[in-house]
Design a protein around this nucleic acid. Structure first.
Lengths: 326, 326
DNA sequence: CTGAAAGCGCTAACAT
DNA sequence: ATGTTAGCGCTTTCAG
């Protein structure tokens, strides 16, 4: 920068001013152009590290990343693109799901003076935000703070379950069952809530026996067979994921029933190839990872600029992909 | 840091020395412990930005990311974890596949004074590395420089095609066909080379007619039917991806042939759920994204520390996942 | 073994 | 409208 100043015959200050287009300072047209030309000519590029030190702002947002699953990649991508659109970059800090490492990751990011942090945990779990998430603007992604003290962006799983279930009702189904996951997480709870709301909306009584918890293709197969063997078998099936849907498909096929003729199926976790591999192609509910990452960063920027914590929780709509199973 | 020095009754220099465990400087045991205690007590953490400015080393590596596909997430993760293991963080810079934006991304990362850059492009394409990739230690990921001037990490697709094809020969197949992709990319060329090498190894003549280019399930279906209708239909099929394998499966099923009894199938792009959805479960060749990301960063560190460009190209083994289709 | 002091490259009062 | 100057928080000679 000194070189530029010298070559253009001005002071460093002037160079800095033209570079930053400081609002209250007007630089003479001639000077400005001379400086700009010199910058161009010398190929000068400001040192972002030095600028960050001085401004106490690094134009960098930290992304804490717990999820080893590949889908998280879309979240990171969404975050990265949203940040980029605002002139910031994303600094990644992973934790192999380890909570101790998580503390560390947050601290490390703060050491680097990131302007804010997006903290993405797996599986929508409620977290007690670590101290450092309070010391710098932060937003949770895919989970929420137990005390709502940190804003969060989550997939609207309840609405998604409601929609998936309602779609089946709307094609005339009377009894929709829910093949849920084995473990009770916030995700499964939200989905169950949505499922129940769909029943209420439809004026159908909730039956405990229509909700089965299972894990894996095999368990889903068994659960479906068991459901089909009941006096009043279901004519619709909401599945927690693709593997479960696969098990259900197999059971339905073995029972010589037709999809969607005899029974409709909808599953969470859209995966184009897998969904199309099933016959008939499976209608799915997608998890909007990209959009979640994007919105988390947008929210973070609001937080940073408004200097006020944005409202508690933002839910992102989960798209429904209609294929042939409903 | 000044506060720590003051509270411990020493100079900043001393604090810096104990913090960095400078080799040639020995600090008295008592002083060191006092300083450490004070640091702990005050909860002091060094400012990484200031340190970066002074040391001209940021412990950050840049990752240029072209690929909008979700699988790239695993590469980023591999890179991130490898970097983390060496005390560095990954700074992301995406480009929507746009070359102009790419120039920019590289420049932005250099402005941030990253210690090195990993540049990941989609689809193994040969690139003429932009100037900035030469001005800072860089390694290409998933592609290679036309002039080999920049080290590269790629999946060993030729070896993978060789292995997949050979596996089929080893179960007694005589004629293995290759359903390749529609476009001629370095990826498809490498795979074809591997396929041909497998033929040579087996002592089988290459037949142009056994290699079909297709894109999508439907095209694969047609290509397979056409192959099966020939006088000497193949008894083995190497598929470019899962969609193509799906089309092949359908065609084989329609032709009332059995997998693997009448014909064996192997496909690139391992995806557990999809592969298991097919009946019989499809044997696949995985693309080692995580490992590639990891190795790219390892290579980059060699580059940075050895201050010498590591040898041209590193190929990562692609794992073969045996299921029931061979 | 420890401290004083210079400076990394930039920004932003404050002067002129 | 432009220049002078004092740091941002740290590392690192060089003296003591």
């Amino acid at each position: 920068m000194r070189d530029v100043a010298r070559a253009a015959g001005v002071s460093q200050t002037t160079v800095s001013f033209v570079l930053n287009e400081v609002p209250d300072v007007h630089i003479g047209q001639a000077t400005r152009e001379r400086v700009l030309a010199t910058i161009e000519q010398l190929g000068y590029r400001p040192n972002a590290v030095a600028r960050g030190l001085r401004r106490a702002k690094t134009d960098t947002i930290g992304f804490i990343w717990h999820d080893p699953a590949s889908l998280a990649g879309r979240m990171v991508q969404g975050a990265q693109e949203a940040a980029c659109a605002r002139g910031s970059l994303v600094l990644l800090a992973g934790t192999g799901g380890d909570v101790l490492v998580e503390q560390n990751a947050g601290a490390t990011l703060i050491d680097r003076r990131v302007d804010g942090i997006v903290c993405a945990t797996r599986d929508h779990r409620v977290v007690a935000p670590a101290g450092h998430l309070r010391s710098v603007p932060s937003v949770l992604l895919g989970c929420e703070a137990a005390d709502q003290s940190v804003p969060a962006v989550v997939a609207d799983q309840a609405a998604a379950a409601l929609e998936g279930t309602s779609r089946m009702f709307r094609t005339g189904r009377q009894r929709v069952a829910f093949l849920s996951a084995a473990v009770g997480t916030p995700t499964t709870r939200s989905r169950l809530a949505g499922y129940r709301r769909a029943l209420v909306t439809r004026g159908v009584r909730y039956e405990h026996g229509l909700v089965r918890r299972c894990r894996g293709e095999r368990a889903a197969y068994d659960a479906t067979r068991s459901l089909m063997a009941e006096p009043h078998p279901p004519d619709g099936l909401l599945c927690h994921d693709l593997e479960i849907a696969a098990g259900a498909y197999r059971a339905i096929s073995d029972a010589r029933l037709a999809i969607p003729g005899d029974i409709a199926v909808v599953a969470f976790d859209d995966h184009e190839v897998s969904a199309s591999l099933l016959h008939p192609a499976l209608s799915t509910i997608g998890l909007p990872h990209y959009e979640m990452g994007r919105l988390a960063v947008e929210t973070l920027f609001e937080f940073i600029t408004a200097d006020a914590v944005p409202g508690g929780q933002r839910r992102v709509h989960c798209p429904y992909y209609e294929r042939q199973s409903v």
